[in-house]
Design a protein around this nucleic acid. Structure first.
Lengths: 225, 225
DNA sequence: CTAAAATAAAAGTAAAACTATTATATTTGA
DNA sequence: TCAAATATAATAGTTTTACTTTTATTTTAG
């Protein structure tokens, strides 16, 4: 994928933070170091205290930006889904064939991120590793219903909707477009995780685009294109 | 499904507990009440203290059976996967057609459990709800590699292997049997969860076997049977 | 009937996830 | 430019979680 626009800014739902972390040096440092720290020690072991030590600020200062570590994870994954949606829209622009659009879309949704291209203080490669390992924890919680009502998952929902629309353009009679696409998005991340931690649950070989191939095959055979 | 054998006992890997909970009244009470308590308040809010209050025993007594609440969840989900595997083997016994076997297998893996039939003190309906909501948390942890090496996920792995073998019997050239079946197992639970909490990610209607239908379609179109 | 094993009762600890208070910088707008 | 507002730092405190430890009492098995 070619280099994208340098001056684009991704906006994240205001309900996710108390003060916009993109508006100050400290805020951007909180985001950048949350990404590396969660990647290093995992979300369970991640605390505001440890983050504060790393950025040399007290935890109370971090609490002025985010009300909990759960909200930071939601912020990061929302940013990630927005960024994927942006890459997706970009990658299918000016393509006329719906089949080709769908194929490109599946590639964006399933291929591991290997380049940190576009945003100053956010390391997209590390962030995408967090998405693989931790994003599931944003909505497998007791607060999911309240947060869904607040609209905290709309980016994810619109990503699914966008690709479902392409599926429906190819086969308007297909009954399960949302199931299919959410299965692809979740499934791709699971398979990447399995290939690293529970290899007998997958068939992925090293450095090959197996996951992408597999989901392309699933999607196109299932919708009958 | 007909009523199964009353005197069958499901054995869970010894490494999951310090003392076999099936061997005492207190132990069985720990299991039975863990299931209802996790179902009521969710795994994050579940503590040994609250469980102790419910069964009127100190938390230190619970610690003599399980070293952590994570191990209880692993115990419960392992029991659940063993039980599903048992139902699976039962449901395909004496069927000759591999296609029919695969269809039955997908039904067992994807249809919600609606009957508590076979085991004295374990409520399978509630346990299957826990499997939908919490089972993902057993392996999305920093300890996953160590626990995989200890063999704590073998039941899950053998369930995937068993169904993958049926897939390969139908199409020996299919390259992704494990990916396909782990996608079905995980996907079915996700779709059940989405239908309750994030409905725009699914197309499931109430009380209909949509999830099962969808995954049958995926599997059979993908392997080309 | 006794000794070993299991359970109960009680207390204690370190860390997590916050909240609150006060002090010191820094910014900004009159 | 200077005072007021705002942001950050420094420090301390609270409640809960996830355990561990110790001692007493009860149960069970030979």
């Amino acid at each position: 994928m070619e280099k994208l626009l340098q001056h684009i800014k991704i906006n994240v739902n205001e309900k996710l933070y108390l003060k916009d972390p993109d508006s100050s040096e400290l805020g951007r440092s909180i985001i950048a170091n949350s990404i590396t720290l969660i990647d290093e020690i995992g979300f369970e072991a991640f605390t505001f205290k440890k983050l504060g030590q790393r950025i040399d600020s007290p935890e109370s200062s971090i609490y002025r930006y985010f009300e909990s570590k759960h909200k930071i994870l939601l912020y990061l994954t929302t940013w990630y889904w927005s960024w994927l949606e942006y890459k997706l829209v970009f990658s299918i622009a000016n393509i006329n064939s719906n089949e080709e659009k769908l194929e490109k879309a599946i590639e964006v949704l399933t291929e591991p991120v290997k380049e940190d291209s576009d945003f100053l203080y956010i390391d997209e490669i590390t962030l995408s590793r967090i998405a693989v390992q931790e994003s599931i924890k944003t909505y497998y919680t007791k607060e999911v219903d309240a947060e869904q009502r607040e609209g905290l998952f709309v980016v994810y929902e619109s990503l699914v909707q966008r690709v479902s629309d392409i599926v429906l353009a190819i086969n308007p009679k297909f009954e399960y477009p949302h199931m299919l696409i959410s299965t692809v998005i979740e499934g791709a991340r699971h398979q990447q995780y399995f290939s690293e931690h529970l290899p007998s649950l997958t068939d992925k070989k090293k450095n090959v685009k197996d996951v992408s191939q597999f989901f392309k095959r699933i999607v196109f055979s299932t919708i009958g294109a």
